[in-house]
Nucleic acid binder design. Sequence first.
DNA 1: TCGAAACATCGATGTTCGTCGATATCTAGT
DNA 2: ACTAGATATCGACGAACATCGATGTTTCGA
Lengths: 128, 128
Amino acid sequence: MPTQGATQIRATGLELSVRETEPACCVPAQGKETLLATEAEALALRFKALADPNRLRILSIVSSSENAETCVCDLAEPLNLGQPTVSHHLKIMVEAGLLNREKRGVWAYYSLVPGALGSLAATLIPKD
Amino acid sequence: MPTQGATQIRATGLELSVRETEPACCVPAQGKETLLATEAEALALRFKALADPNRLRILSIVSSSENAETCVCDLAEPLNLGQPTVSHHLKIMVEAGLLNREKRGVWAYYSLVPGALGSLAATLIPKD
DNA sequence: TCGAAACATCGATGTTCGTCGATATCTAGT
DNA sequence: ACTAGATATCGACGAACATCGATGTTTCGA
C-alpha cells in the first residue's frame, strides 16, 4: 500500500496546496513516457547476456580471434569451464542477438553479430 | 605458449598429423590477451546493474526528470514496486557507479553519474 | 556400418537475485 | 521530547541462474 501524501500531489497534477514550505519532492516526470515495461524487459534480456564474467570473456575471445570465428573447444579450456557450460553461455548470447552460430561439419563456429554490441551501447548514451 | 600451445595439449600423443585437409579448428587466440578474470568480474558487476527491467526504467525516469534528480517516492508508484524494493535497486546502481545519491532533509535525491553510462558503452564498441 | 569426436540438451544442485513485510534510522516540525 | 514522514536495512521466500555429469544428436572417417 503506497503512502497517501505524495499521491495526492501527483493526482492533481500540479502544486496547488503546496506552498513554499515544501521543496517539491515527489513530483514525478511531467507525464512523459518512461521506458515501457515491455521494452525494458527486452533490453534487460540483452544486458543480462553481458552480466556474466565468463560470457564477457567469451565475447572478448570471439572478437579477438583471427577470423572473428571461434568454436566451442577454443573456449572451454581458457575459461576453465566444462563444454556443456560453454554451450549454455553461447546459446544465451545467440538468443540475445549478440552472436552468430554457423555449423560447419562437426564444428560450430561463433562470431559477433555486426553492430549488435554497438546498438546496445547506443541505448546507453543519453544523446538522441 | 600462444600459437601452438593448445594444439599440443589437445594432441596428447595421438593425432597431430593434421595437414591441409583440416580447417584448423581449435586453434585458440594467438597470444592475444583475453579479458582477465578479474576485469571481467568487475565489468559484469556493472552490466548486472543494467540487467533488470525495473532498474532500466529507474534510469530512464532519473535521466528524463526535470533537474535530473529523483527521489524514491517518485519511483515506487510508476513502477508498481514497494519502497524497500526501489531502495534496493537504487543501492545496486549507486554501488555500480551509475547513480549519485544526495540526501537533503528527509528526501534522498538520485542523479546520473556523468559519463558513467558512456564509459560503460565504450567498453562495448570494438573500437579499432 | 561402426566408432569417434564435437556439440547440444537434460536433470540435478548450490547459489544468487528480486520482492515483500516488518523494523530501524534519520529529519523536520509541533 | 514527541510525532510523522521518508528512506534504509533486515529476514524470508520463491524464482532464476551457473555449473556439472550424463546422455542424445550429428558428422566424418575407417
